[in-house]
Design a binder for these strands. Structure first.
Lengths: 152, 152
DNA sequence: TTAAATGCAAAGAATTTGCATAACA
DNA sequence: TGTTATGCAAATTCTTTGCATTTAA
């Protein structure tokens, strides 16, 4: 059984709206609460990377009583469901944003297999490279050469 | 003037041994202390990514009185000097390791220019990809396609 | 001698957890 | 009604900082 406050964490895919996610959540045994709806609304409002504290601020603008621990618990849940991506930057707080479906590729130099991986994986790298070298990664032509699990 | 406990932080390059770094440090107005020598010795012993706490443990095996705050202060200094790289993984503690000179490439899809960038930039990405997909990036064939500063 | 480095303790920031209460389904 | 979710406070983990003391040069 899942521990308290955590729904079945199989990936939740194909969502497009706040209500989509909430419905998926309910189908998995979770509950639709005001805090969850407000958090998702904040996340859907824009795709910027925001800290738990920033998201809490946005939620609290509507519902001042929502505690930051509730934000953390719900973010953990959404990360587990694949709805949200978490990124740890520098020494600062983790940032969260809706996971996107764009992707990069892992190309095996041995068998040529191409594995799609979520574009988010490269997000931080892309930002760093742009900053330091003025080099813009082409997200649609992003490929990494190496050896796949099968060939190793 | 640099604040207390911090030497001139221009990059310190071309070091190969613990003593190299210590000499460079002294030339910049820093001092050679037992704690620094032990920390560098630990870092040079292997290139694994280790947390401040793990490094403190190795130093304390020789000199039990060295405090973790001294480890943190010296690591900060070495990072500033370019001798050590710091990586923030997951939610856990930062990890440190000697900076290496190996590199990857940024290939411009327009002019074909190839820019070398320190391999460390890809370190975290490589670890993540290996973990999640079992895919091993070839560090010598790591190339990223995009558009260079000049062509943008 | 004197500025830099250290030890120690305390503060800080980010996140997690325990538990009683509230509220979805 | 029976869990699940929440609020609140306290605990944890990692890191930084203030200050008196020590020490390298």
């Amino acid at each position: 059984m899942a521990k308290q406050g955590q729904v079945n964490d199989l990936p939740l895919t194909g969502f497009r709206t706040v209500e989509d996610v909430l419905i998926g959540l309910r189908e998995r045994g979770g509950r639709v609460t005001p805090a969850r709806r407000l958090l998702l609304t904040a996340l859907f409002r824009n795709h910027a990377h925001r800290s738990a504290e920033e998201l809490a601020g946005e939620v609290q603008a509507q519902a001042p009583d929502v505690n930051i621990s509730t934000i953390y618990r719900n973010l953990d849940e959404l990360v587990g469901l694949g709805v949200v991506d978490r990124t740890h930057i520098g020494g600062g707080p983790a940032t969260y944003h809706l996971s996107s479906s764009t992707h990069g590729h892992l190309v095996c130099e041995q068998c040529g297999t191409m594995t799609e991986v979520p574009h988010e994986l490269f997000g931080e790298l892309g930002a760093t490279i742009r900053e330091r070298y003025g080099f813009a990664i082409d997200p649609h032509r992003f490929a990494v050469i190496g050896r796949c699990a099968a060939c190793r």
